[in-house]
Amino acid sequence: MAIIRSFEELELKAHARHTETKGGFSIQGQDGEKFVQINTFGSDDRMMPGKVSQTLRLSKEAIEQLAELARKHL
C-alpha cells in the first residue's frame, strides 16, 4: 500500500493500452489523519479476478491537487 501526498507530472514514452476493471474507495484513518483509499480489482482475464490488485491512500493535499488537475485538464 502507498500513501500519496502529492503528484508530479511524468513524461511517459510508451502509451500502453489498459484493460477495464472495477474500482472502489473508502475513507481510512491513520495516525489521526484521514485518507481516501482507492482499490482496484483484478480484471476478468486475471488469474484471480476480483482480487484487490492495487491500493493507494491519498492525503487531503493529494486529493486537492488531483481535483485541480482534473479541472484544468479534463
Rank of each mutant, 00 (worst) to 15 (best):
K13Y: 04
E20D: 14
G42W: 01
Q30T: 04
T21A: 11
G42F: 03
M48T: 04
F7T: 01
R17Y: 05
Q65A: 15
F7N: 00
E64P: 02
F41T: 04
A14W: 13
H73D: 06
K22L: 07
M48H: 13
A16V: 10
L10Y: 08
S43Y: 13
E68G: 12
Q30A: 07
M47D: 03
E68L: 08
S26E: 08
L12T: 14
S26G: 07
A16H: 11
A16M: 14
I4G: 01
R5Y: 15
A2E: 04
I4A: 00
K51R: 15
L10N: 13
L69M: 14
S26D: 11
L74Y: 13
H73E: 12
E33V: 11
I38K: 01
A14V: 15
A70D: 12
A70P: 07
Q30I: 05
I27P: 01
G29A: 06
M1F: 07
F35Y: 09
E61C: 03
R5M: 07
A70Q: 12
A62Y: 00
S6M: 13
V36R: 00
K60W: 04
L58Q: 01
S43R: 11
L10H: 12
G32D: 09
I4R: 00
M48R: 08
E11H: 12
R71V: 08
D31Q: 12
H73Q: 13
K60I: 05
H73I: 06
Q28G: 05
L69V: 08
L56T: 13
V36E: 07
Q65K: 09
V52K: 14
E68T: 13
E61L: 05
D44S: 08
M47S: 04
Q37S: 09
A2P: 01
E9I: 15
L10I: 14
L12H: 06
F41E: 07
H15D: 15
L66V: 11
A16L: 14
I27S: 04
S26Q: 10
K22F: 06
V52C: 10
F25W: 09
L12P: 09
G42P: 03
K72P: 00
F7W: 10
K13C: 06
A62R: 01
V36A: 11
S43T: 06
L10V: 15
T19Y: 10
V52D: 12
L74A: 14
A67M: 09
E8L: 11
